[in-house]
């Protein structure tokens, strides 16, 4: 029962919101336009630090900070897109992953401690957000038998509303002529170009919009944890988001959300099961064989194996249709 409840909580938890937002951004870039942004975590870092630095370091307002973070994401997208969007897809992949790592190293260096808090990160910047909460912050709520504090509930409400609005936007975009151009670019950008579409600019738009949504994800995550820590913005986060996106199905508005929720529910279940097996009086697996670090690592092993299996057998995702893919074979 506890396993199920953990899984249920993971379905709606802030982690799921975070990865859903990252993956929604990637869906526009990768799913619709075919762009390989491997530095989504860098955009998320900017969204988070935008608030943290504006509020904690400079004493500005939370909302100004949110704006700063999103604006920084636009700048990063322009900076990365300008040189690489005319080139083969891998160049963007390499440039984005490098830029994200560079940002992380730059933000965590002790020489930048005065601004970014160095390796310690920054805390205490989300007060203004929680002041708006209609739920008393410390009150306990039990929807569906799962325990949430008022603080959590407020964040989850805002977070999931944001996700819902963005899913709606992606749905509208996907059915619009704009979305049609993106799909055409994904299929064959020369064809789109020959039909008078400014491919470069469309790709840039997709990169910017997806990056800004990634930054929103970072902002939500930082607000939820009330802190930023440079070492949570590791490249693996981006790949988690890809795993969520591909699991849920690319180029579908709901794909990233289903994927993120499912991924975290699955991980939560495996985690609980493995921990159950290794603890207690008479563990099935001795904790000498599988310590807690190894359990954490096992989750990643499963994510990795899942990504390979999906790409090999169901590149359209769990819920994707088979027809689209069979066309590929021709």
């Amino acid at each position: 029962m506890e396993i199920l409840q953990n899984a249920l909580k993971a379905l709606v938890a802030r982690e799921a919101i975070y990865f859903a937002l990252l993956a929604i951004g990637l869906n526009i870039q990768f799913g619709y336009a075919g762009l390989l942004n491997f530095g989504q975590v860098g955009f998320s870092l900017l969204g988070a630090y935008g608030i943290a630095i504006t509020v904690t370091t400079w004493g500005g307002s939370y909302w100004l900070g949110l704006g700063v973070g999103l604006a920084a994401a636009v700048v990063l997208a322009l900076l990365l897109g300008l040189p690489t969007l005319r080139l083969r897809a891998d160049y963007l992949a390499i440039a984005t992953i490098a830029a994200a790592e560079m940002l992380r190293l730059g933000f965590r260096t002790p020489s930048a401690t005065e601004i970014t808090g160095g390796t310690q990160g920054l805390q205490g910047f989300s007060g203004e957000f929680y002041e708006l909460s209609p739920f008393p912050l410390d009150k306990k709520y039990h929807p569906f038998g799962i325990l949430f504090t008022g603080q959590e509930l407020w964040l989850l409400t805002v977070g999931w509303t944001l996700v819902a609005l963005l899913v709606l936007a992606v749905w509208l975009w996907g059915r619009s002529p704009w979305g049609r151009v993106l799909k055409a670019i994904r299929e064959d950008e020369d064809a789109a170009r020959a039909l008078g579409k400014n491919v470069y600019w469309y790709k840039m738009q997709a990169l910017i919009v997806g990056g800004v949504i990634g930054a929103l994800g970072g902002a939500v995550q930082a607000t939820a944890t009330r802190s930023v820590d440079p070492d949570t913005y590791l490249p693996i986060v981006t790949f988690y988001a890809y795993a969520a996106l591909i699991l849920g199905g690319t180029a579908r508005p709901l794909g990233p959300v289903i994927g993120a929720s499912l991924l975290f529910a699955l991980l939560s279940v495996t985690d609980s099961v493995l921990r159950d097996l290794t603890t207690g009086d008479n563990p099935v697996i001795s904790s000498d064989i599988l310590d807690s670090q190894a359990i954490a690592a096992t989750r990643f092993v499963l994510v990795g194996a899942g990504l390979i299996a999906l790409m090999a057998f169901r590149p359209q995702g769990i819920f994707g249709s088979r027809t689209e893919v069979s066309i590929d074979a021709k």
Binding site: R180, A184, E187, A191, A194, L195, D328
Partner: peptide, 15 residues
């Protein structure tokens, strides 16, 4: 360069 994963009509409307 038919855009395989788009419908024939979408191919046309795109242009």
């Amino acid at each position: 360069k038919a855009l395989s994963k788009m419908t024939v009509l979408d191919n046309m409307k795109l242009a």
